[in-house]
């Protein structure tokens, strides 16, 4: 049986976010809802990366004066995940902006936000 630590729980939450996002992108028809689902998916991935660095009873990864260098690696939280997440947030902002702009274009072209109608080329 898996032990339910904080890390396990956040992995569970991350997996839930990913799966909700994926289901939304696959099964929802509205383009705006698809966009929201996309951001949920990327949030799930971010949460997984952040919770990767969790150390139970750990400390902030800043070397205080007088800190023991031998204990530090085992106690400090992993900073690699949050670093990747920073990049991911920036990329997410850019892609969301472009996707939103494309949705506006599609709406003006077809007069509808339904992906099924847009794909068939139908106008509202």
């Amino acid at each position: 049986m898996i032990e339910l630590t904080l890390q396990t729980l956040s992995f569970l939450a991350a997996a839930l976010l990913v799966i909700i996002g994926m289901a939304g992108m696959l099964y929802l028809d509205n383009l705006i809802k698809k966009l929201i689902a996309f951001t949920l998916l990327s949030d799930g991935v971010n949460l997984a990366l952040v919770s990767l660095g969790y150390v139970q009873g750990g400390i902030v990864p800043i070397l205080e004066p007088g800190a023991s260098l031998s204990d530090f690696p085992n106690e400090a939280a992993l900073i690699f995940g949050p670093g990747i997440v920073l990049t991911n947030i920036v990329i997410g902002v850019s892609t969301t902006a472009i996707l939103a702009a494309l949705i506006v274009i599609l709406y003006k072209r077809y007069g509808t936000l339904k992906a099924s109608k847009v794909l068939k080329g139908e106008h509202e």
Binding site: A15, M22, L52, F72, A76, L78
Partner: peptide, 22 residues
């Protein structure tokens, strides 16, 4: 898919070296 995603996340847990590179 949920089971796959969750299990891959859980596998990350043990396979990452704790702490910061020496």
């Amino acid at each position: 898919i949920f089971a796959g995603v969750l299990s891959s996340f859980m596998q990350l847990e043990g396979n990452v070296t704790r702490g910061i590179s020496e």
